[in-house]
Design a binder for these strands. Structure first.
Lengths: 230, 230
DNA sequence: CTGATACTGCCAAAAAATGGCAGTATCAGT
DNA sequence: ACTGATACTGCCATTTTTTGGCAGTATCAG
């Protein structure tokens, strides 16, 4: 196995273990000596991987993923830039920042002239409605989706009626004018969606909901295809 | 210099030359033997670089760029996926396809579980206005911007008046309801923008316009900041 | 204080990359 | 049909890089 493939493997092994792993274990799993493992860890860290090692504990990797060397066409580059600009403007918050960071990471490894070409990608995103209040919940919602956790919310519908619900959020829709959480609603025992800006209170819980988000999304798509398509 | 750095360099050298370059020249520029150059070319091709070599001619690289290994956080991955989905849905055409291809490329190099996570990124883009007629010109416009070429168009404004113009397109704005070409207009001798769907005829020309698009964009931004921000 | 582990420097051994050479293939131009 | 230019491959000795082992230091938790 080539060294570069092994480095990808190492990342992968670290990703699998949520708990710290000792270098000894990692080396055994990769079939290399501990000495080489230390070198590999150093190489990955130099490439930007967020690996921390603590004496007496082991190594952990902050969630993330590593791409091997990859070739993109001009169109693909422009598409990535335009998409990231849109996320940066319209999603805002930590996700928007993440879009900017992703572009900055890409730019930082390009030679100067290509970096300029990337900055000068002349595809612009028009202004949208100002980010409305309530979108402060977006990060919490994304986290709950990622971890498949129930949320307890207070919601005010179009007519001004408020209700308390426990929901299983499994997707987040970005519309031109609103962000909509798509959920299973325990109150109605059915799929329901909620505009993020009409959620007046949102509490995270530690309760994992009993189904997989991918399955919920699939079922919802089949039932509700007309309302929000991917 | 490490081998991997040299491979990036090779891509870079190929990018600079728009004309075919002989392997001999490339090897000399990199300070390696011709034999090693052949091996490097083969490695890059195996990594997806679009390099073609013809006996008697030399090597050329289709426009594009190569990323070295790179680490993204979970948020950055989600942002890239959401952005690409938006481009795929809203920009449509070749650019939308390019967004899909970029995602597919990324997915194809990820281990299976991460690929599933990418597919299952539960951030959706809401439906927009159907892509209106006239957006068929988008590719031609993007190409003209990229190559800094004049375009000759027939345009019908809001009031239904038509005009013939020669324009210097330097940016393309994506609004929720329209795509707008931002240009220097030879007729008005000033900056003007045109909705892509109101362009009734569009002819590409071979004439390069006399200023750099980056400079035009900068000047327009300073003058016209209120109308379309980046 | 101990056990567990991270981490470094050094060096010999193992593996990979390199360069040279010899040879084949293909294409454009004459 | 021939020539010149160049791509491309296999083989192998040489050079460079990677690796493993060892010895030793550092840090942290209990």
């Amino acid at each position: 196995m080539s060294r570069s493939a092994r480095l990808l493997d190492l990342i992968q092994i670290l990703r699998r273990h949520r708990q710290p792993v000792s270098g000894d274990n990692l080396a055994r799993e990769l079939g290399i000596s501990i000495r080489t493992l230390y070198r590999d860890i150093a190489t990955l860290q130099a490439q930007g991987a967020d690996i921390t090692g603590e004496p007496g504990i082991g190594y952990i990797l902050k969630p993330g993923f590593m791409l091997p060397p990859l070739m993109f066409s001009e169109d693909e580059l422009e598409a990535l830039v335009l998409g990231s600009r849109w996320v940066s403007k319209r999603a805002g918050g930590p996700l928007g920042k993440a879009a900017e960071n992703a572009l900055a990471k890409i730019a930082s490894v390009l030679p100067k002239d290509l970096r300029e070409q990337l900055d000068a990608t002349n595809l612009l995103v028009g202004p949208g409605d100002p980010v409305v209040a309530g979108d402060t919940h977006l990060s919490a919602i994304r986290l709950a989706i990622r971890k498949e956790r129930k949320l307890s919310i207070a919601y005010e519908d179009e007519a001004g009626r408020t209700s308390e619900r426990t929901i299983w959020p499994f997707a987040l829709g970005f519309f031109d004018r609103a962000r909509v959480v798509i959920t299973w609603c325990e109150l109605r025992n059915d799929f329901r969606h909620f505009r993020a800006d009409r959620i007046v209170r949102l509490d995270e819980t530690d309760m994992r909901y009993p189904r997989r988000k991918a399955v919920l999304l699939k079922e919802w798509r089949e039932l509700d295809r007309a309302k929000v398509k991917n």
